[in-house]
Simulated scan of single mutants.
Amino acid sequence: MATLSLSSGTTIDEIADRIYRISTPVDIPGGGFSFNQYLIDDDAPLLFHTGLRKLFPVVSEAVGRILPIGSLRYIGFSHFEADECGALNDFLAAAPHAEPLCGQVAAMVSVGDFADRPPRALQDDETLSLGRHQVRWLDTPHLPHAWECGFLLETATATLLCGDLFTQGGSTNPALTESDILEPSEAFRRQMDYFSHTRNARAMLERLAALQPKTLACMHGSAWRGDGATLLRALADSVERDQAPH
């Protein structure tokens, strides 16, 4: 897997067939961190996560190394947060035919007002064709946080665009790994306490596991390849243990 590096430190790697991880390292108190976007290069190209508004110059440059930015058709994200969609309107301005892509709740409570163009609001379990690829929207309210949270499964490659699940600290993680990401991501979760305490976490993680993803496209840290069902169930076990009364 070849890595393309930009002068900003942003890197571009193909983690599945025509699915590219764009990762920008940043310094935060206590160490490094990374913000990842995922670009699906197809007839109707999709960018999942925009990055922070201030990262638009470097992220848009990275997108432009893969395809003309004006050809973007969808700008998607898991939930309404600055690192998920802070640069949404910048991308909409650069891509005149692009639509924001989100769940019904996000469209209702935030995106319909914030975005400069009306969003394409997907229903739970709705599938959208991009050409060779298809993405399926999955509502996951409050997993790991935000009422409007949801994920996309790219069905042709079994790639789960899983947002803030399995967040790993550090800014020098490999683009794609088959090594353990549960232990470092759980250490980060316990330190930052960014998961909600929804009682439905187990059921939602089981639903994601049943899809048997082969690649997990994490927003922070490495993307991961392997038995996604087993890893998601291990996360459910860990979260459940931490939330049990002591």
Rank of each mutant, 00 (worst) to 15 (best):
T230F: 09
R120K: 09
K214A: 02
L6P: 03
E178H: 13
P25N: 05
D43K: 10
H133F: 10
T155E: 13
D164E: 14
Y20D: 12
Y74C: 15
L46Q: 04
D125H: 13
V135E: 03
I69Y: 03
E126N: 11
E81D: 15
D139T: 10
L165W: 08
L92G: 05
A82C: 08
A209W: 02
L130S: 03
L128A: 13
T172A: 15
D41V: 15
L52S: 05
D125P: 00
F114A: 13
G228W: 11
G163H: 03
G112Y: 14
P96K: 08
L161F: 13
P96V: 07
K214I: 00
M204R: 14
S238K: 06
T127I: 09
T10A: 06
L161D: 08
R190L: 08
E186I: 12
A16E: 04
L152D: 06
F48P: 00
G31E: 10
R120Y: 10
Q168M: 15
H79V: 05
V135G: 08
N89C: 10
G170A: 11
G9W: 14
V111P: 01
D17K: 05
R207Y: 06
R136M: 14
R21A: 04
T198V: 05
F114V: 15
F77H: 01
P141L: 12
I181H: 05
E240I: 01
T10N: 02
